[in-house]
């Protein structure tokens, strides 16, 4: 006896609606990959700022100016800013999706997260790349002591 006598199911399979990009999958993957980078970036950041050298007491304007004088720390802080902010924002988006049931409330919260993330990313990146501890047209007496005297 063969199985050929079994009729086809009554309803055929309708494929799910195809979205252009599967954000859930890439979001899930992003959280894991950025998490790996953040472990190195955050602990490196904390060690250099708080533990190495004179420890937490050495943090002042000159210390930051010194860090941003080297391209290494500019790249490090840029990566830290983008990875951490998007990682955090995606986590908040997940929590909102889990717990905000009302459509309007959900949309408001998600928009607030998106706007604040974009604003912080733009501001932070702007600060990292336009930081100048000794601006040329500064008023006398407002510059830190390490600036060259004109």
């Amino acid at each position: 006896m063969t199985t050929e006598t079994i009729p086809a199911p009554r309803s055929s399979y309708a494929p799910p609606k195809k979205r252009r990009v599967n954000w859930e999958k890439w979001g899930w993957l992003y959280m894991r990959i950025s998490g790996l980078f953040l472990v190195v970036l955050i602990f490196g950041h904390l060690f250099v700022n708080l533990a190495s050298g004179a420890g937490v007491r050495e943090i002042d304007f000159a210390f930051i100016a010194g860090k941003y004088a080297t391209p290494f720390w500019i790249v490090w802080d840029t990566l830290l800013l983008w990875f951490a902010l998007i990682h955090g924002a995606n986590g908040m988006r997940t929590i909102v999706n889990d717990y905000a049931h009302r459509v309007v409330l959900r949309r408001v919260l998600l928009t607030a997260i998106l706007v604040s993330t974009v604003v912080l990313l733009v501001l932070g990146t702007l600060v990292i790349y336009t930081f100048d501890p000794c601006p040329a047209n500064a008023a006398a007496g407002t510059l830190p002591t390490f600036c060259p005297v004109k």
Partner: peptide, 15 residues
């Protein structure tokens, strides 16, 4: 592949 497509959804395994 059909089932993986169904579960690769906003309300699928990524939750």
């Amino acid at each position: 592949q059909v089932r993986l497509d169904i579960l690769n959804d906003k309300e699928g395994v990524w939750r």
